[in-house]
Amino acid sequence: MTTPFPADVYAARLSRARTLTADAGLDGIVVGAGPDLAYLVGVEGDTIERLTALVIPAAGEPTVVVPRMELAKVRDTAVGSLGLAIADWVDGEDPYALVEDALGFAPARFGVSDVLPALHVIPLADRLGVPVLATPALREIRMIKDDAEIAELRRAGEAIDAVHRRVPGLLRAGHTEREVGEDIAAAILEEGHRTVEFVIVASGPNGADPHHEVSDRVIQDRDIVVVDIGGAVPAGYNSDSTRTYVVGEPDPEAARRIAVLVAAQQAAVDAVRPGVTAEQVDAAARDVLAAAGLGEAFLHRTGHGIGISTHEEPYIAPGNALPLREGMAFSIEPGIYFPGAWGARIEDIVVVTADGCVNLNTTPHGLTPAGA
C-alpha cells in the first residue's frame, strides 16, 4: 500500500486532529478503520473483528493499535513514513488495554469515530467509560479540502465526465438497464477510476425512484433515463455525477419540466459562496421548483459532501444552518420524481472558492439525447 500524499500532509492532518480533539473538550479520540483512518494516516480498509485503531490523545503523540498480521501493510503507509508509535497484538491478547495505554490514562471523556462498531465500542466502554462520538472533531478537519484534495476531486470529475460523454452511445432501446449498467461500469474503470462505487440506470418509471440501481427492464423508445454514476480515482477521492437522458424524442411536457430542473440546479450552484448556509443553497433549488408547481416532486436534500467518502459533511439540506467555507466540496443534485411515470436529476460536484464556487463537472446539463 502506498499513500497518495507526502508525509507532511498527513502530519499536518494529525496535528489538526489533535487540536480539534482538545477544542471539543475530549481527552483523546479512537479512530477505527474506515474513511477517517484513511484520511489521517492513509490506512485503508473496513472495520473487522480484530481492532485496528489510531489513538490520538489531546496531549501526546498518536499510536496505532494493529493486529500483528496487518503490521506490514500498516507500516507501508504514512504510519511508517511518519514513524508513528505502533502497538501490535496477536489473538489472545487484549487490544483495548493497548488503547488505554496509548491514551496514557483512563480519560474523563474520549471520542470514537462513527464507523467503529459496537463490537469494539463496548469493550472500550467497559475499560475506559462510555465514549462520545468524535464526529465534531473529525468532520471539521475533513470538510475543508486542501489544494491536493481539490486536485484529486477535479481529476475524479474529469474522469466521470468522460464516462457521461460515452453514455449516449451505450444507452439504446432494446437493451436492459443491467446491460447498460455493465457497459458504464467498464467505462468508469477505463476512464481512470480504480473502483466503481455505484451505477444507477433508471429508465421510464424506474426513474421515479431516486435510489433505483439497475434492473432487467428493457429500455424503450422515448424513455427518460436517469444515469447516476461514480467511482474512486487511485488516490481514493470520489466522483459523483448525474445526467438525465432521453431515448428518441421526449414528451414535450417532460422536456419542459426538466428544463425547470436544470434552472433549479443552476440557481443552487449560483448561490454557493462563503458565508451562505447549506440550507440557503438547498432553498435556492427548491424555490425554483416550487414556483413552477414542482416542489412536491423534489423528494430529497440538494446535496452532500464528497471526498474520500462519496457521502460526507457538509449536507446541503433544509435545516442545516452551517455556513459554507472556502474549500468545502459537495454535490448539487435536485431531482423531480413522478411515480409510475419518470424521474430526472442533475448533479454536479462544486468546490467553494473565495467568492463563489468552481464546478468540477462540465458535461451538458439539459435533457441529453441517447441512441434509439
Rank of each mutant, 00 (worst) to 15 (best):
I29E: 02
F110N: 04
E312C: 13
N206R: 15
F110H: 12
A87I: 08
D147T: 05
P234R: 11
D23G: 04
G248T: 03
I184L: 14
A267S: 09
I86H: 07
A38L: 14
I200M: 06
P323E: 10
Y245H: 12
L170I: 05
D147N: 01
V130T: 14
I56F: 06
I122Y: 05
L84T: 03
L153W: 08
A125C: 05
V227D: 14
D27N: 10
A354I: 01
L103A: 06
Y245V: 14
E326M: 09
G169R: 15
I56S: 09
L294S: 12
A159W: 07
R165N: 07
E249S: 13
P131G: 07
R217L: 06
C357H: 15
P323Y: 04
W342I: 06
H311V: 15
R127M: 12
V218K: 08
P234M: 13
E253S: 09
Y10A: 05
I258C: 01
T135L: 03
A329G: 03
P323W: 05
P4H: 07
P334C: 02
S331N: 15
L103W: 11
G42H: 03
G207A: 05
V351P: 09
I346K: 01
V66H: 07
G80H: 04
S241I: 10
L367K: 00
E100P: 06
I48C: 07
A137M: 02
Y96C: 02
P62Q: 02
A125R: 08
P234L: 12
C357D: 13
